[in-house]
Simulated assay, not measured.
Amino acid sequence: MNNGTIRHMAVFTLKSAPDSEETQSFLRDGARILSVIPGVDNFEVLDQVSSKCDFRYAFSMEFADQAAYDAYNAHPDHQAFVAERWETEVAAFQEIDFVNAAV
């Protein structure tokens, strides 16, 4: 990850069962809609394997800088996905944003 790059992760648990079509649809649609928003790099859908974490899934992506991240948050496709899917299908979540540590 380059200096200035922001790695954004939204870790979450869905209301639907892990093996349900609703869950698969949410994950597929999230990848299809969010990954093509301008400024999104290295989009991944992740499945939690640790028993130490209560969140089951993650959407992970990178942005070249704060301006790209801000544009993503303001993008109408992101806002529609949040309003129409995220707010109704996600049971719990945490957003995590990282940059390279200055070490």
Rank of each mutant, 00 (worst) to 15 (best):
F26C: 04
F26K: 05
L27H: 03
L27E: 01
L27K: 04
R28Q: 13
R28G: 06
R28L: 14
R28C: 10
R28E: 11
D29E: 15
G30Q: 05
G30R: 04
G30S: 09
R32D: 10
R32K: 15
I33L: 09
I33F: 02
I33Y: 02
I33R: 06
L34R: 09
L34C: 10
S35P: 12
S35D: 12
V36D: 05
V36G: 06
V36P: 00
I37T: 10
I37Q: 04
I37A: 10
I37C: 09
P38T: 13
G39P: 01
G39K: 10
V40W: 00
V40M: 03
V40C: 03
D41N: 11
D41L: 12
N42V: 10
N42I: 11
F43S: 03
E44D: 06
V45Q: 04
D47Q: 13
D47Y: 04
D47C: 12
Q48H: 09
Q48M: 14
Q48C: 14
V49G: 07
V49K: 15
S50P: 00
S50G: 08
S50D: 03
S50F: 03
S51C: 06
S51V: 10
K52T: 12
C53A: 11
C53D: 11
C53R: 15
D54C: 07
D54H: 08
F55Q: 05
R56S: 14
R56K: 15
Y57N: 00
Y57Q: 00
Y57K: 01
A58M: 10
A58N: 04
A58P: 00
A58K: 03
S60G: 02
S60P: 00
M61D: 00
F63S: 01
F63W: 03
F63H: 01
A64P: 02
A64H: 09
D65Q: 09
D65F: 10
Q66D: 14
A67H: 04
A67S: 07
A67E: 07
A68N: 05
A68D: 05
A68T: 06
A68Q: 08
Y69P: 02
D70Y: 07
A71P: 01
Y72C: 07
Y72D: 03
Y72E: 03
N73R: 11
A74F: 11
A74V: 06
H75W: 03
P76V: 05
D77Y: 14
D77F: 14
H78R: 15
H78I: 09
Q79K: 15
Q79E: 09
A80N: 08
A80K: 06
F81L: 07
F81Y: 08
F81S: 04
